[in-house]
Design a binder for these strands. Structure first.
Length: 497
RNA sequence: GGGCCGUUAGCUCAGCUUGGUCAGAGCACCGGACUUUUAAUCCGGGUGUCCAGGGUUCGAAUCCCUGACGGCCCA
């Protein structure tokens, strides 16, 4: 009868019990760390360099990520967020505590105190005189050499991904933080005020997207998660803020793929007395600033492309882009000399796959199929058909176009901006056209009329330049990641039964 | 929404084509040795709902069907 070997968790719980029996608290409240790992190492290297003899005595702490035991001498690699540091535990130096090692595992947190030395192989090491358990782990870590590869488990248990693939994963998220910091400081330096507007809204307006629906019990009212911050920020412009921005989570009830997650982060900004050309300059400078600040470079590598972010960026009118890359002259369609159905027929002849739908959707599909894949270097597509842009002001001299741009890099939409429509009557007509399209096509991805916003506009909004920039897309671009899941710590996953 | 691929030990994977010593390897883990290691080493040990459910068969990780979850491509 072979003896039963306990599973990993049981075996670790037995160790935990043995520690308790020895009077050791496996989850003590206090830590006596004197230095993060990187600081301890720097301190040692400085003192060695200055040749002042005495090696520093430190207390370091971290997770045990490897152990190499040789009887009465054990080496342990401790990791904290600043890096890895080797600790040596010798029976003759730690005395009675040495046998406790038997019940410590890879994955546990400990602290260790002692002088810093260099081992004979040259490794900077804390030669422990004492050590304490800080937290016992009762689950085994993923394999040390191959890490954690299973994509599903990496996203569902991101902490394991971070533990096992630390050197590859954590830097991206640190960079994400720095990019957002760079954007924020850029905006603040230009005199913008950061604000917060409601996430739960009575009308999901301001963008073309399906909202998440929820319900407020006390008010007994249906509410939506915001699909944009636009209309609230414009209310603030009406109220007299001249420069506002919000970096916030946006929710859109649509599919999940390599560059879409149902909740994502967008920055919107609104600047009174500015127009879309001012916003264009701001976007170029902002993205360039972020790349400079975080990566100290004006060019970034994205897959096989070397992307030059130095302003100014190419500016290409929408109709010219469709003509250049799609071979279609939009003039007759814009002027009403030909119908949307005619456009669909012509586009299909040119090899594009278009389904019947509202005209704004047809234009949008045409843009994404014909043009976007070609826009590798940063490009502003400007002057959109009015039907696509119910919140943008008409372009003078072009009755069917509006002052709008979208910015594309490596074929990916990065930003969207308008000279904002501030004529309340015109805005009402545009909303009505959207409602009409919704009725005709039963399309949920049209904009909705927000009466409260129209009321605000009637009090007068100054000429304003507005911007929405996808922070996740920006982070993908600058960090070279090709899937949004790799720049979101917890991407959306289907729950399992 | 459509197509393709994947799911086997804690982790990384083999085994599936051709059903039958097929429950396997490395790391981890368990027991033992070891006072300068770096994926430590040496000796011994396999710890498993082969994603789930159904079917075919004397016999299914393997073949068929359905489903779940994930990934890639397309829309």
């Amino acid at each position: 009868m072979p003896k039963r070997v306990p599973d990993h968790r049981t075996s670790r719980q037995q160790k935990l019990q043995r520690l308790l029996d020895k009077g050791i608290d496996p989850y003590p409240p206090r830590v006596t760390r004197t230095h993060p790992n990187a600081d301890a190492r720097d301190l040692f290297l400085r003192q060695v360099q200055s040749e002042q003899g005495e090696s520093p005595t430190v207390t370091v702490a971290g997770r045990i990520i490897a152990r190499r035991g040789m009887g009465k001498n054990t080496f342990i690699d401790l990791r904290d967020s600043t890096g890895k540091l080797q600790v040596q535990l010798r029976a003759d130096l730690v005395g009675d505590a040495y046998p406790i090692l038997r019940d410590l595992d890879v994955g546990d947190f400990i602290e260790a105190s002692g002088p810093m030395i260099r081992t004979r192989t040259g490794e900077v090491t804390v030669e422990a005189r004492s050590f304490n358990l800080l937290s016992k782990s009762i689950r085994p870590l993923p394999e040390k050499w191959h890490g954690l590869r299973d994509t599903e488990q990496r996203y569902r248990q991101r902490y394991l991904d971070l533990i096992a693939n630390n050197d590859d994963i954590m830097p991206t998220f640190v960079q994400r933080s720095r990019i957002i910091e760079a954007v924020r400081s850029f905006m603040n330096a230009r005199g913008f005020v950061e604000v917060d507007t409601p996430v739960l809204v009575p009308i999901a307006a301001g963008a073309l997207a399906r909202p998440f629906v929820t319900h407020h019990n006390a008010l007994d009212q249906q509410l939506y998660m915001r699909i944009a911050t636009e209309l609230y920020l414009k209310r603030l412009i009406v109220g007299g803020f001249d420069k506002v921005y919000e970096i916030g989570r946006i929710f859109r009830n649509e599919g999940v793929d390599q560059d879409h997650n149902p909740e994502f982060t967008m920055m919107e900004s609104y600047e009174a007395y500015a127009d879309y050309t001012n916003v264009m300059s701001m976007v170029e400078e902002m993205v360039h600033h972020a790349a400079q600040t975080v990566f100290d470079s004006s060019t970034i590598q994205y897959e096989e492309h070397s992307i030059d972010l130095k302003p100014p960026w190419r500016r290409l009118p929408f109709c010219d882009a469709i003509k250049e890359y799609g071979g279609i002259d939009l003039t007759p369609y814009l002027q009403g000399e030909a119908t949307t159905d005619d456009l669909i027929v012509e586009a299909r002849q040119k090899g594009f796959d278009l389904a019947p739908g509202p005209v704004h959707q047809v234009y949008d599909k045409l843009l994404s199929q014909a043009v976007e894949p070609h826009l590798i270097q940063p490009t502003f597509i400007i002057d959109y058909p009015m039907a696509m842009s119910p919140l943008a002001k008409k372009k003078p001299g072009s009755p069917h176009l509006v002052e709008r741009f979208e910015c594309f890099v490596v074929g990916m939409e990065l930003a969207n901006a308008y000279t904002e429509l501030n004529d309340p009557m015109e805005q009402r007509r545009r909303f009505e056209e959207q409602e009409e399209a919704r009725r005709l096509f039963a399309d949920e991805e049209t904009d909705r009329t927000d009466e409260d916003f129209l009321l605000a506009l009637e009090y007068g909004m100054p000429p304003t330049g507005g911007l929405g920039i996808g922070i996740d897309r920006l982070v993908m671009l600058l960090t070279g990641q090709t899937t949004i899941r790799d720049i979101l710590l917890f991407p959306q996953m289907r729950t399992r039964d």
